[in-house]
Design a protein around this nucleic acid. Sequence first.
DNA 1: TATTGTTATACTCTATAACTATA
DNA 2: TATAGTTATAGAGTATAACAATA
Lengths: 151, 151
Amino acid sequence: MSAPSEDLVIALYRLGLVQRSIARHALAELGSQGFTALAVIQREGHVRVSEVADQLSVDLSVASRQVAALVLAGYVEREPDPDDRRATRLRPTESGTRVLTDSHRRMVATATSALSGWSDEEIAGLASQLERLREDFATVASLPTRQEHAA
Amino acid sequence: MSAPSEDLVIALYRLGLVQRSIARHALAELGSQGFTALAVIQREGHVRVSEVADQLSVDLSVASRQVAALVLAGYVEREPDPDDRRATRLRPTESGTRVLTDSHRRMVATATSALSGWSDEEIAGLASQLERLREDFATVASLPTRQEHAA
DNA sequence: TATTGTTATACTCTATAACTATA
DNA sequence: TATAGTTATAGAGTATAACAATA
């Protein structure tokens, strides 16, 4: 009766519980997207706001707000970009690195506890499938914007 | 270096793109949670608000608001519950069923397009893994509330 | 002109708390 | 007392649009 992709979409929507559960246990000082934004800044080094927006697949204005909140909280610092005076480069402060590490640890602990019945292979397999899913949707999502050209 | 559950958690957070993509393409008249609430009401028959809250794993107040919005939009009707005069029973209107069917169709179309490189088995496998994930997190999420008893 | 970034506004989803009505 | 539900308030996440400064 139901198409397989239908079951998948419903499963995706019902994932809200999982995300809220992790957020509550692990992200005390950081909103979920504040966390991912900080993670991008930590991982990439001195990124620009627009790169954060790209990595998170959100509008630049959203990334701008999240970064502003991180700066206000003292977790991120801005440096002028020597190559482009419109842009700023971002880097985590010591406090930001500490908060990220802490959230990280609690996040993994929460997930590990919930996933006690899973093997490492199963967990890794699911993570890679989700990554593949994201990439495939990113491809589709990027097309409509350019359809005005095509048509 | 990284625990497998860490990769999984990051993949989960990065799923926002997928959910927004589906929402934009498929849920014109319905918010994402309005859609899931309506789907529960359609699927279960004459449910109460509290059952919607349970199915969605959200607070009763959240379900109450979502249901109120669906009623206001003419997608759901309330009937008094003969067995309990505090409660009301919910059922979709014709219009609600139509909207749900439409969103459903567009949703599946969007997903099918993004998942063109996937086999049915892969899609079904991912859906069932996500369902399992949700159940395992639901178990963990329900514990902290009761820890006051234990301790 | 196009791009980088910010700000204002608005909408959705969520939770907590206070409240009403019924069990 | 406890439960079903509603409403008010608040906070996070998101998008669009208008804007400033620089390329």
